[in-house]
Every structure is written in C-alpha cells, then in structure tokens.
C-alpha cells in the first residue's frame, strides 16, 4: 500500500515536471530571434535549377537553339506550349512562332528535359504574376533571350551527326561488340 502511494506521488511529480519542462521550452522559444525571411524586403537567392519562368536560349554563336521539334509541346502535361515550325534556307529548322501560356504552365520542367537542343530552359525568376490573365501568354519575343542559359557552350549541331572517335567497345563503360560470326558464349 505504501509503495502504491509512492508510485502515485512519483507519477504526479513526473507529470508536473513534464508539463513544466514543456512550458519552459516554449518560453525559451519566445525570446529567440525569429528566423522568418521577410520576403519582399529580402529575396532569398534561389538555386540556379529552380523551376520558374521559361526562356528560349541561344547557342554560343548567337543562333536560336530551338529547332521546333515539338517534343516540349508533346510532353507538356497541361498543353501550354504551342508553336509552328519553319525551315531556313540552309535547311535548319526554327520556330516561326512560339507561345507559352504561363497561366496554365505548372512549371514541371518536362519541356526542359525533353528538349534535345537545350533550347527551352526554366529560370529561378518567379515574380511575374499579372492582374490580367491574358498578359501571361508569352510570345517568342518575350521568351527568347540573348544568352545560353545553364549550359552556354553546348551546341546541338556540334554533337549531332558527328562520328564517334575511337573504335567500338573502347569508350567509357561500353561493352565489347558482339561477335556475329560465332554463337559460342
């Protein structure tokens, strides 16, 4: 019986002590400096790969990278990209017009992944909301920029159609070519 009473007292003490420690911790937090970043006054530098406003980049020579292959338009889950393709006199394709409806865009980045020429890219700039929803429809003039974006040196035409140097099976992590003259393992 006496042991039981001691247990009750201990449970009471532990309960009160637990509550008191909880109150102490919250009181300590009351006097800490807030860690809030005050947004319009302080803009946190965003990582280069944050996904926001979409741009169309140029390659190192200053040519438009976009070849109007429609891959971005096809992969876009909300179908916000549309364009019409054209062909220059030297046979290189380009977009006659290119339109992104940012009112629909969900900034998923699939277009960037799909793009073979690294033309379409997402930038960290997210502050471009408008009161009029039609102002969010961006045309090619609005999208095209004068720089190479994330990978400025990359040029699709320096890689596409260029023969691989070295023999088969000599490249990094490449398996040896299969000998078609024998069926031995």
């Amino acid at each position: 019986m006496a042991g039981n009473e001691v247990n009750i007292l201990r449970a009471f003490y532990e309960g009160v002590a637990g509550l008191a420690s909880a109150y102490r911790i919250t009181l300590k937090h009351l006097f800490r400096k807030p860690i809030t970043e005050q947004y319009p006054e302080y803009k946190r530098p965003l990582p280069a790969r944050s996904r926001a406003r979409i741009i169309l980049t140029r390659d190192a020579d200053g040519d438009e990278r976009c070849v109007a292959c429609f891959l971005c338009s096809a992969v876009c889950p909300v179908s916000c990209i549309s364009m019409e393709s054209g062909e220059r006199e030297d046979g290189r394709r380009y977009a006659q017009w290119f339109r992104i409806n940012f009112a629909r865009c969900i900034y998923c980045g699939f277009c960037e992944e799909a793009c073979p020429t690294l033309a379409i890219q997402l930038t960290p700039d997210f502050e471009f909301c408008q009161r009029d929803i039609l102002k969010l429809v961006y045309e090619k003039e609005d999208l095209l920029v004068d720089h190479g974006g994330k990978n400025a040196e990359y040029d699709f035409y320096k890689h596409a159609g260029v023969a691989v140097k070295g023999d088969k099976g000599t490249h990094y992590q490449e398996a040896a070519p299969v000998n078609i003259k024998t069926n031995l393992p």
């Binding site: 919250t26 937090h29 009351l30 800490r32 400096k33 807030p34 860690i35 809030t36 005050q38």
Partner: peptide, 10 residues
Amino acid sequence: KLLGRFQIRF
C-alpha cells in the same frame, strides 16, 4: 504575435 514568437516567427 505571441504565437508567432513562440514558433520563432514574427
């Protein structure tokens, strides 16, 4: 205000 400060906000 107080609740904010308790949670280290403003």
